[in-house]
Amino acid sequence: MNVFRRELRANRRSLIFWCLGMALIILTAMGKYAGMAAAGEQSISDFIKMMPASVQAVMGMSGLDLSDARSFFVVIYMYVALMAAIHASMLGAVIIAKEERDRTSEFLFVKPMTRAGIVTSKLLAAVTNAAVLNLVTFAVSFAVMGQLAKGQPFAAGLARMMLGLFLLQLLFLSVGSASAAIIGRPRASTGVAAGIMLFTFLLSSAIDINSDWDVLKFLTPFKYFPARDMMLDGGFTVFYVALAVGVAAVLTVAAYYFFKRRDLRV
């Protein structure tokens, strides 16, 4: 419990920044949207709808329909997911690697606690952080959508999106912590976690542009929980949920396995 509390406290300030940043993005984007929707620029929506999917994708406005706030939120969700993924992957890597980075491993790992116990406390703290960011995102989105949805149902869709977001966060947390647990050099481990995150983001953008690459969707978590499906059509794909949970579980087990066995840097 003490390690858990210590980690919560150590990450508190950064978590507040992330929550503020997330709220800021959602609020400014949706606020600006409200202005545009009020001006009734319907012709723009029609225009966008006619563009080929690849062009919509690269312009970051797939399926944008200005008459429907939910559709606009789906567009913004891409960036919400990106921020959450950066937060999770870096948090997962740093929380495991920080003792070696700060040369405090001699302090912590000689305490009467197993390494697995320490990892568990740290991962729980990381999951708590991710959950808080998720809930803040949920709360802010819910409040904004309540103002803008004009009576269209959004609560269930939004809840599904946030559930998908949470799975995405867990997945990237496990990517970060596994790379830190396996690699051992603090700087290299954040590098690997960032590299994977960046690669999957670029790949998901490439798939948007080029539908021939759809078969590669399983390689990028950004494609596991499509925002449009979550919000409007109401469904998770069992395969992708299972894949996300499975990958996260395997990576977490790997993190424990390797961290228990490797030499610590002092």
Partner: peptide
């Protein structure tokens, strides 16, 4: 202490602002 988390969040922050 860790460079990457700082640079990633700053760079992506500006990127997202631009895309929005």
């Amino acid at each position: 202490k860790s460079v990457l988390p700082v640079s990633l969040s700053t760079v992506f922050g500006f990127y997202i602002v631009g895309m929005v």
